[in-house]
Nucleic acid binder design. Structure first.
Length: 329
DNA sequence: ATGGTTTTTACTGCGTC
DNA sequence: GACGCGGTAAAAACCAT
């Protein structure tokens, strides 16, 4: 259940392996015999021909190579692409269709190149590779940053949060955290992390409503990113939610202040550990509104905080108890 | 995977407007 | 009768192991 991403990649690589196998059996030509001399047939993938090993008869030519087109690339690229899976894929910006220069140092007729030519080709490969990957990373980044911007404004997050989110995303990108994960997922996680770091947290649910990615995946990717980048993010402080909820409910500054006080005393009493910060904030808001005689119903609070009324009830009892214990010891 | 904890869901009863 | 509130039991979600 928590492993849908892993399951996904595993399936992809399995599909790739089976593809390799069929390619292999195609190539060995064991069951096929030469019609002239009954000799073994071998497949020459270089020229796209099937030839009899004994008499040299060309049985078939201009064959289409059904193998994945990236097999002949350099080994670094093979690694990269293998992880992604199928030869053409939506997961690469160019669907794997961009021009590449083979590594065999042979010309179109299969002849070996002169050393001068080899050097030249090597330089071309280097530059082609540089442009291609730089290009792909930049598109990737562009899309992700656009996404971050969109979500941030939907959530009313300030500029500095977007900045941090972009920084986190760039770090994830340069640390090669992207392969196997969606751009959107990582972008969303970066934003979630940034919002928390900036002290203006949004709950996972809120994030999930503006993201194109499922909550589960966000949570998973977020954990992964935080771990890999060594980000230090403390659990969200309930007080950080207070101003937002208070203003959404049109509460006075007075009750907002009392809500904070309630949370402070609760913290001193240690009542808050293990409970959801959002729930505590919501309960504090509700309790404070009661104390200041401002009319807010539990359901209204539960609405803006996305928390159940039951949780509000439970929490706010605890908050009031903690308050009493401080005053009458 | 499992077990313990927290949150949610669904339902009920009570008082008030 | 609808609404706000409180409580409860069972289910679901979450978390650490």
């Amino acid at each position: 259940m928590t492993d849908s991403v892993r399951g996904y990649t595993a399936e992809r690589s399995r599909a790739r392996e089976s593809e390799d196998e069929t390619e292999g059996t195609n190539g060995d030509g064991e069951r096929l015999r030469c019609p002239e001399c009954e000799g073994q047939l071998t497949t020459d993938t270089e020229h796209g021909e099937t030839v009899c090993a004994d008499c040299g008869l060309v049985v078939e030519e201009d064959e289409i190579d059904h193998g994945p087109e990236w097999r002949a690339f350099d080994s670094k690229e093979k690694d990269q692409k293998s992880r992604v899976g199928a030869p053409t894929t939506q997961m690469m910006h160019d669907k794997g269709l961009s021009t590449n220069i083979g590594w065999q140092d042979k010309d179109a007729y299969g002849k070996t190149l002169s050393s001068r030519q080899r050097e030249k080709m090597q330089r071309l490969r280097t530059w082609n590779e540089r442009f291609r990957t730089r290009d792909s990373k930049e598109r990737n980044l562009k899309q992700a940053l656009g996404e971050i911007d969109r979500m941030a404004s939907a959530l009313g997050l300030p500029e500095n949060v977007r900045e941090t989110a972009s920084v986190i995303y760039r770090r994830a990108l340069s640390d090669d955290l992207l392969p196997g994960r969606s751009i959107e997922g990582v972008a969303t996680s970066a934003l979630y992390a940034a919002a928390r770091q900036a002290g203006t947290p949004r709950s996972l649910d809120e994030i999930a409503t503006v993201s194109r990615v499922e909550k589960d995946e966000i949570a998973r990717t977020y954990r992964y990113v935080v771990r890999e980048l060594g980000l230090e993010i403390q659990p969200a402080d309930p007080e950080q939610y207070v101003p937002r909820f208070a203003s959404e409910l049109d509460l006075s500054d007075e009750s907002e202040r009392r809500a904070r006080d309630l949370l402070k005393t609760a913290k001193e009493q240690g009542v808050h550990s293990g409970k959801s910060p959002v729930g505590l904030a919501a309960a504090a808001i509700y309790a404070a509104a009661l104390l200041t005689n401002e009319k807010v119903t539990q359901s209204e609070v539960s609405e803006v905080a996305n928390i159940s009324e039951v949780t509000i009830r439970n929490r706010y009892h605890e908050l009031l108890e903690a308050e009493e214990q401080i005053q009458v010891p």
